[in-house]
């Protein structure tokens, strides 16, 4: 009962947060100095043309009224029309979302694998030079943000040893039989491994750049909590039963050490998704973030609003999901 109550409270605060985001974005973009309408008309357009188009996009009304109109549209799934492409914002945003989601999930998987291996190796080899080396590596990886890792990876594996693609999402000359924009997933489902390899090779560098700092955080935190767990009596007891070090770490310590890491990974995953904006730009990857920067440069107000709201929905959604998973996984909370 208490569990249900806390879920409801969490959902409510999430909604309040989203409304706050909507308000701030809406009013921020209304302050933009340059008139986007004037920019999209050809030179020589008359004042009347500008006024007509301004009225069409509803930009002539007072800002609070514009907000109400926009918000009621949003609640009906209508995010307005992009000024530059004249297409519905929702359609544009949803067409790019899969690319960003695939990139983020791939980055998260890489981070979990690398971070997990670091933590487990560090725990297995505690007190040795290997552990010290892992600590130094983690510290370095943590200090450098994804943007710089991206540049370093471009130099290392795009120029020095050119084995991965460093721009785009897929080789342009390839014919794509896809019906959705989840290229990586769909190529796998259609058993087109040639395409899958090409897409993965394009995605690997940006995903790795996003993954490195998160991998370091996972590695550090998981190793820390594993080390604390390894001193506990039930781990010692398992040793006396005849179990080896690897079994003790994986079966006894890991399930208990993983919970604090999980909450942190949730928060950090939202940071990672936020990082896709600049990483997509850096690797000319056709995702949401790249589109967002173009939208800002072109002053495409409806599109900017739509993208920021979508990011906010993803962020708060991930946090909500993590909190619920945490509650569901922890037997103590589940039965409380």
């Amino acid at each position: 009962m208490q569990f249900l109550q806390s879920v409801i409270i969490r959902v409510c605060t999430t909604l309040i947060t989203l409304i706050g985001v909507a308000v701030i974005v809406f009013f921020t973009v209304r302050v933009v100095p340059g008139n986007p309408i004037a920019m999209m008309l050809p030179p020589g357009a008359t004042e009347a043309d500008v006024a007509r188009l301004t009225a069409l996009y509803g930009l002539d009304k007072p800002i609070p009224q514009q907000f109400v109109i926009w918000l009621s549209g949003v609640l009906h799934g209508d995010f307005g029309t992009s000024i530059t492409t004249k297409q519905p914002v929702l359609q544009l945003v949803l067409s790019r979302l899969p690319a960003t989601l695939e990139l983020s999930v791939m980055a998260l998987s890489i981070a979990i694998v690398i971070g997990g291996i670091m933590a487990l190796t560090g725990t297995r080899q505690r007190g040795t030079k290997t552990e010290a080396a892992i600590d130094v590596g983690n510290g370095m990886a943590l200090s450098i943000p994804d943007f710089l890792w991206g540049l370093i990876l471009i130099l290392a594996f795009g120029v020095l040893i050119p084995i991965f693609h460093i721009s785009g999402r897929v080789t342009p000359s390839l014919a794509l039989p896809f019906t959705s924009n989840f290229y990586l997933t769909e190529s796998l489902l259609r058993l087109r491994f040639d395409l899958w390899l090409d897409i993965a090779a394009h995605m690997f560098m940006p995903a790795l750049a996003l993954a490195i700092p998160l991998a370091a955080i996972i590695g550090q935190l998981l190793k820390q909590s594993l080390k604390e767990t390894m001193h506990l009596d039930y781990v010692t007891l398992a040793r006396t039963k005849g179990y080896g070090e690897t079994h003790v770490i994986l079966r006894e310590a890991l399930p208990n050490a993983i919970l604090p890491t999980l909450t942190l990974v949730g928060v950090q995953f939202t940071f990672l998704i936020g990082g896709t904006v600049i990483i997509e730009r850096l690797f000319s990857y056709e995702g949401l973030g790249n589109m967002a920067i173009d939208a800002v440069i072109n002053r495409d107000l409806p599109l900017i609003q739509g993208i920021v709201i979508l990011f906010a929905v993803i962020f708060t959604g991930v946090n909500l999901l993590v909190d619920l998973t945490y509650a569901a996984l922890n037997p103590r909370l589940r039965h409380a």
Partner: peptide
């Protein structure tokens, strides 16, 4: 051999 540990509160794995 077997061990009867000191502190029963910490000697059982809480997640199993």
């Amino acid at each position: 051999c077997a061990l009867i540990p000191q502190d029963p509160l910490t000697a059982l794995n809480p997640s199993r």
